[in-house]
Design a binder for these strands. Structure first.
Length: 460
RNA sequence: GUGAUUGUAGCUCAGUUGGUUAGAGCGCUGGAUUGUGGUUCCAGAGGUCGCCGGUUCGAGACCGGUCUUUCACCCCA
């Protein structure tokens, strides 16, 4: 009995039509990355679990896909744990590999492992799928592609500025209106310091991140429930509700954080970045947003997030600076900063806005109808010349009915069809049919090539 | 992980309080048209109603479980 085929939850097949669009996104970001001097690398889909575990917080560990050891994976398992169904404790006995959760941690691993061959600062980009075992929902998949650009081995804020330029250029090319939100983890640390709750920084950032979602009152409730005193909550009110221009916000912050060295350092960094951005006069809207926390706990400086203005789908790009990601793997004092473009969400946004280019440049421009035998030979000979002229062309592989071959051309939206049977072959010509207008004419090979090239080739 | 939601032909969906042989549109195949697609007309093929179990004389419909879809929460691209 034939079983119904299917794919795992949260994964997707991509049809030719979708791939053309996806590749357009990949090609666009790649071209920008390369323009700024970033070079490609790739890393394996699976990493050692020890590389992945503990890098994304408790929640992240849960969302890691673990791979069962090969062979008799239970043979080394502890009997007692097995009997008690202690899956969490059993994991490291039955699994030593996992699917990568993002591209940043594998990159840090790569840098440490290849440090002797790398010239710093190292600028790399990486476009590969990542996997997360959470429940799929709108704009969330279990397998999705990230397009990462990172610089490691440089503390300069010029890198932050450059990455913002990359964001600006990518989204201008893709024709998406976005706003880039900028914050600095040092400021968040400073806030926690000022209210004497340095250990609560994660709780505080998570709570204020929800401001525009659940409102001020609920945020304060959450802060209280996490054990913050009412005076502490009182102290950070002006920060949560900061308003005015960027300059005004920074000035207010300076006052509140005057007693915190890290806090002031964070403000200074932001000021520098904003000053550079002012000089560059980007079209991109850059907004200082203190409610931007981002969950990944390895960020130490700048934090970025990009949202589409016209589509509600969550962030489509995110990133930040991490001062010590390579430290865990034994390479100290290498700071890095990077951002990640979420290709799948960008795809969803562009689809909703219908902002993909109409002409894709990849589909077949002309189909040669197959009449078999000597006519077929005549066709493939001409076909070779047409292809040599840079035209995407194919011949129908079987001497099938005309109706079938024409239907094929129609379905594939091939704009031209060439008919060359006995008569044409004897006269050394071709019948060229324009599938859009229905017109057809007898032409020589040269005229055929010229006409297809002149048409721009592609209908939508 | 928590709370909802969906599943009937290749696709989109009807299917009455539980009652004979489960329907439509689109698509597909063949024909009208042996060298002409996208329009039209005619005919045909295609379904263990997601899966397992239960209630019932009788289940596509009701109940339980499971998988799947979509959505919200947590978290995140």
């Amino acid at each position: 009995m034939a079983q119904k085929p299917g794919i795992p939850k949260g994964t997707r097949d991509f049809s030719p039509v979708e791939m053309v669009k996806r590749n357009y996104i990949f090609d666009t970001v790649k071209s920008v990355f390369q323009k700024y001097g970033y070079m490609p690398i790739e890393t394996p889909a699976m990493e050692n679990l020890s590389t992945l575990m503990g890098k994304y917080g408790e929640e992240g560990d849960k969302l890691l896909f673990k791979i069962l050891n090969s062979g008799d994976y239970l043979s080394k398992a502890n009997d007692q744990l097995l009997a008690e169904k202690e899956s969490n404790k059993l994991i490291n006995q039955i699994s030593e590999k996992g699917l990568r959760y993002d591209l940043t941690v594998p990159f840090a691993r790569y840098v440490v492992q290849h440090q002797s061959e790398i010239t710093f600062p190292f600028k790399r980009y990486q476009i590969q799928p990542v996997w997360r075992a959470d429940r799929p929902q709108k704009g969330r998949y279990r397998e999705f592609f990230q397009c990462d650009v990172d610089v490691v081995g440089s503390n300069s804020l010029l890198n932050e500025v450059e990455l913002i330029q990359v964001v600006d250029e990518v989204y201008r090319l893709l024709n998406i209106n976005v706003v880039l939100k900028l914050n600095n983890r040092k400021i968040l640390t400073g806030i926690a310091e000022v209210i004497g709750a340095a250990d609560k920084i994660v709780d505080i950032t998570v709570a204020i991140d929800k401001l525009d979602k659940i409102g001020l009152e609920k945020v304060n409730e959450e802060l209280a429930s996490k054990g913050l005193s009412s005076t502490a909550i009182e102290t950070i009110q002006p920060i949560i509700q900061l308003s005015g221009t960027t300059q005004e916000k920074l000035a207010q912050l300076k006052e509140v954080l005057s007693s915190s060295e890290v806090g002031l350092k964070g403000i200074e960094e932001l000021e520098t970045v904003f000053t550079y951005l002012d000089h560059l006069k980007l079209e991109l809207e850059v907004e200082l947003d203190l409610t931007l926390a981002r969950g990944l706990n390895y960020y130490t400086g700048a934090i970025f997030e990009v949202k589409a203005k016209d589509v509600a789908i969550g962030s489509i790009t995110g990133g930040g600076r991490y001062d010590d990601l390579t430290g865990i793997f034994g390479l100290k004092d290498v700071s890095g900063v990077g951002i990640s473009f979420g290709a799948d969400r960008i795809y969803d946004v562009m689809n909703q806005l219908d902002s993909f280019p109409k002409k894709d440049g990849v589909r077949t421009q002309v189909l040669f109808v197959n009449f078999g035998d000597e006519d077929e030979l005549y066709a493939i000979h001409a076909l070779k010349n047409v292809r040599a002229a840079g035209i995407n062309a194919e011949v129908y592989p079987d001497n099938g009915k005309m109706k079938k071959q024409m239907t094929y051309a129609n379905k594939k939206q091939i704009p031209f069809v060439v008919l060359c049977g006995e008569q044409e072959r004897k006269d050394g010509v071709f019948t060229l049919k324009n599938m859009e207008s229905g017109e057809q004419s007898m032409v020589t090979l040269e005229e055929l090539v010229k006409e297809i090239q002149a048409s721009g080739g592609l209908m939508n």
